[in-house]
Design a protein around this nucleic acid. Structure first.
Length: 466
RNA sequence: GGCGGCGUAGCCAAGUGGACGAAGGCAACGGUUUGCAAAACCGUCAUACGGGGGUUCGAAUCCCCCCGCCGCCUCCA
């Protein structure tokens, strides 16, 4: 399997630190509001990556952080923090805000069929670990204390800028924030801050304050995954400064390099070809979309069917296309369930094998889900041409299930019909036996109006929801 | 101002020098099948890859210019 490593800017063969095991950290939500469809692109990507690694036989340990410490709303190290702002606006205390949106996040990822990670560490529960790392950084000469604030001295870490491609010179040239006189270098960043206005405060060796913006991910990833692990993911906007600073912190504290072997970042999502923004009216949370009647599985399909390093243009039409594509796969599954030929079909093996090869080749090539799906649909078409036995169908179904262990779009509760609809379907069957097509068509139309579609096949009548 | 990316049919989207006479999905239109439908299958649907130059025996793929969109340069997935 090859993956594109942001750090080296090329596709590399994926070789885990420990054979057979993958340890992965995904940058998770800041829980001061509902996550947007753009956020979910990154989470669905991480989920598909995890599922792909499991498909290929790796045991994956996945950690997703929950950022429940407020970061600042403004560019500089001042202003109101986001948790405080949300709390004020919602007339709640910040801890309630965090709890509320953390719960919303878990409901949303469940709706998108995102598999639960092993750990969801919350930043507020790991302040002692953050303090411990900061102390190590101070001891190693990577950090300094000024007036109860602790800053990272970027000049002590030669690799600073390697991930993003920035150099300190360039950053200085592009600096748009006011220089903080406490800092030795403009690019130094805060590890621990004091500010009486901040609503969440903890005691520390440097006085009462709160942790800096990047330290939580260093502390929590090391705690749960060790000082060196395989994969770290996030949105492309995390590359700088967030991930850049994390590397400086973690490698500076542990002295071990590389902290993370493969960095993988998702591109941004556009809505109707434009950046998602409230003023354009194209700013969507998951619940905004489901309230419009869109199926979360169709949304997942759209998010996972475009290669993660390409811009994704999210449109309502694309969600409809996703819904219909899922329906095609489910119809395929239904037809397989009805297979009843007396003899096995010798042509099946080749069709399945070609599908499997294509699907795996796509995933192996830096998670090229578009290519993998194309192979799947080619296989569906080939298999649909064949007359299959029960045993044949079982083999095809098993492969489809295996593919869906990566896609995650076909699962869904088995639906049932109420007794009245069951009765109408039977009534229609009786009418058809009498060749009373007027009655049978009327019943079919009635049920269609109620969202139940009927299809007559050789084996009988089947139904599905519109 | 500096750095990086994208622009492929009505829509979504692979492909990044020769098997492209451009995957796949959705939509649409013809046909087979069906009592009629649906599903399924077959066929049609980009002489064309934002526009213009150039390199090459050969370019959607490389180079240059232009247009549009997006990201980063200490809030952001």
């Amino acid at each position: 399997m090859k993956v594109f490593n942001t750090y080296t800017r090329r596709k590399e063969e994926f070789i885990p630190v420990a054979p057979g095991c993958v340890r992965m950290y995904n940058c998770g939500p800041t829980v001061y509001n509902y996550a947007t469809i753009g956020n979910f692109r990154a989470y669905v990507f991480a989920d598909v990556l995890r599922r792909t690694l499991e498909y290929f036989g790796y045991a994956v340990t996945q950690v997703v952080n929950i950022t429940d410490v407020g970061h600042m709303t403004s560019d500089a190290d001042e202003g109101e923090d986001k948790m405080a702002k949300a709390a004020r606006e919602q007339k709640k205390d910040p801890w309630q805000v965090a709890a509320f949106y953390t719960e919303a996040f878990f409901r949303d990822i469940a709706a998108l069929n995102i598999r639960p990670a092993q750990e969801y560490p919350r930043a507020t529960a790991h302040v002692p670990e953050m303090i411990a790392i900061i102390e190590r950084l101070i001891a190693q000469g990577h950090a300094y204390v000024v007036n109860g604030n602790v800053y990272y001295d970027v000049s002590t870490f030669p690799g600073y800028g390697a991930l993003s491609g920035n150099t300190l010179d360039q950053l200085n040239a592009g600096a748009r924030i006011e220089i903080n006189p406490e800092k030795r270098h403009p690019q130094d960043f805060a590890l621990w801050k004091q500010d009486a206005r901040h609503v969440m405060q903890w005691d520390s060796p440097w006085g009462r304050g709160f942790p800096g913006w990047h330290i939580e991910c260093s502390a929590m990833s090391v705690k749960y995954l060790g000082e060196q692990f395989d994969i770290h993911t996030g949105g492309e906007d995390n590359i700088f400064p967030h991930h850049e600073c994390e590397i400086a912190q973690t490698e500076g504290a542990t002295g071990k390099r590389p902290w993370v072997k493969y960095w993988m970042h998702t591109r941004f999502l556009l809505v109707n070809g434009q950046k998602m923004s409230k003023s354009l009216g194209n700013f969507f949370t998951l619940r905004d979309l489901t309230e419009k009647g869109l199926d979360p599985m169709a949304i997942r399909y759209v998010l996972m069917s475009t290669h993660y390093r390409q811009p994704l243009n999210f449109t309502l039409e694309s969600v409809e296309a996703g819904r219909e594509a899922i329906r095609r796969l489910k119809d395929f599954r239904t037809r397989l369930g009805e297979a009843s030929a007396a003899q096995d079909n010798p042509a099946l093996e080749e069709a399945l094998e070609a599908g499997r090869r294509g699907f795996e080749a796509g995933l192996s090539d830096d998670l090229n889900t578009s290519a993998a799906l194309a192979a799947l649909y080619d296989m569906v078409r080939e298999v649909n041409k064949l007359t299959l036995s029960r045993a044949d169908a079982q083999r095809a179904l098993a492969l489809l299930e295996r593919f869906d262990s990566v896609m995650g779009v076909l699962s869904g509760s088995e639906e049932s019909l109420d007794a009245e609809i069951e009765r109408l379907i039977q009534e229609r069957l009786d009418a058809r036996k009498r060749r009373d097509f007027k009655t049978s068509d009327r019943i079919r139309d009635d049920l269609k109006a109620r969202g139940i579609l009927l299809e007559d096949s050789a084996g009988g009548t089947r139904w599905k929801r519109a």
